[in-house]
Amino acid sequence: MTLLALDAGGTSTRAVALTPAGDVLGYGRGPAGNPTAAGIGPAAESIGAAAGVALRTAGSAEVAVVAMAGEQTDAFRTEVTERLAAYGVTRVVLEHDLLALYCSGTPAPDGYALIAGTGTVAARVVGGGLAAVVGGRGWLLGDAGGGFWIGRRVARAVVAALDGQAPPTALTPLVLAALGIDMRTADPEDPVARAALVRQLVSSVYARRPVALAELAPLAFAVPNDPAARSIVVAASRALADLVDAVRVPELAGPVVVGGSVVVRGILGAPESLAADLVPPAGETPVVPVPDGLVGAAVLALRHTGHAVDEATFLRLQERVLAYALRASA
């Protein structure tokens, strides 16, 4: 029997073919496989394309597990099932990307998961399933501590500084450059010049999709000694800690598996001068960062077909999936 595991994200889709013993047979990658981000048809097509590459050696698979965010609609399931049937798949299981992320970091059946990318969501995992989920409400209604949340505060800090409502910030040249605004000839002491820069900034931001402000989030981590940037990052770390606390229960210590650029490359990768002020998203519990949910999707594929995943199998999966991914990106 050959199994297929896929992590269908909003930017790309990753797939592995594997045996019931946890041996990886192939790896594939395709465009966005999340129906919310790409649309049902294109997302299903991306999943099929990634599956085809992963199955070049094995040729076919019987069961496929697809880890994804968002609503698992009947229409999407039908499209994916039809695409994967071309590779012999007769059973398709759709799983939450949070659960796959958790299973990418540990084989333990109980613990916590946190995703902090553009948005934020946390979960408590019990018995290998999702027992509680908090967050994930989108940039308009939630996602505190996520990329949009940070990026919006970065843009607001620059507008306030240029307007004279706040002290100057090192974020200003970074934000203006990111938006393609040339400030080299503008005198920062000239209120007329500053007003012109604000107008350009406002026009640029409102011309884009609101969630695109998430692209400015990394700038907050680029100048850790700037007071405005520092306050934004510290507030974000506290918001993420609060999100995990919302699903935490006294009888379950952890582990806490985390993924997403804000927490993995931002909060956990912050320099020492900033890290001392940050609140770890897991309190006293060790944090396990992972790049994505592909290993977890493979773990779930094994469990859905009745195969236990012990520590040795889990570590072998981690090692081999990483090796295939690195080879594919070389």
Rank of each mutant, 00 (worst) to 15 (best):
L3I: 09
A8G: 04
G9A: 09
G9H: 06
T11D: 08
T11Q: 11
T13F: 09
R14K: 15
A15W: 02
L18D: 05
G30L: 07
G39D: 06
G39A: 09
I40K: 04
A44F: 02
E45L: 10
A50I: 09
A54H: 06
A54E: 03
R56I: 01
S60N: 05
V63S: 06
A64T: 11
V66C: 04
A67Y: 08
A67F: 10
G70N: 07
R77K: 13
E82N: 14
E82M: 12
R83L: 03
L84N: 05
A85T: 15
Y87I: 04
V89R: 05
V93I: 15
E95A: 14
L99H: 02
L101E: 08
T106Y: 09
P109Y: 00
A113H: 01
A113Y: 00
L114C: 09
A116N: 00
T120D: 01
T120N: 01
R124D: 00
G129Y: 11
A132D: 14
V133M: 01
R137T: 11
G138A: 05
L141Y: 12
F148A: 10
F148V: 08
G151R: 07
R152Y: 15
V154E: 05
A155W: 08
A157I: 03
A157F: 02
V158N: 09
V159H: 14
G164T: 04
A166Q: 07
P167A: 14
A170E: 14
P173G: 08
L174W: 04
D182R: 06
M183N: 15
T185S: 12
D187L: 12
E189S: 13
P191E: 06
A195P: 02
Q200M: 12
L201F: 08
V202Y: 09
S203Q: 15
S203G: 10
V205E: 10
V205T: 13
Y206S: 12
A207W: 00
R208E: 15
E215H: 10
L219T: 08
N225L: 15
P227S: 03
A228F: 05
S231P: 00
V233R: 07
A235H: 06
A239C: 03
D242K: 00
L243T: 01
D245G: 12
A246Q: 00
A246L: 01
G260N: 08
V263G: 02
I267D: 00
S273R: 13
L274A: 04
A275K: 12
A275I: 11
A276K: 11
A276H: 13
D277R: 12
D277N: 03
L278A: 03
P280M: 04
A282W: 03
L294P: 01
V295S: 07
V295D: 07
V299W: 12
L317D: 07
V321Q: 06
A325H: 13
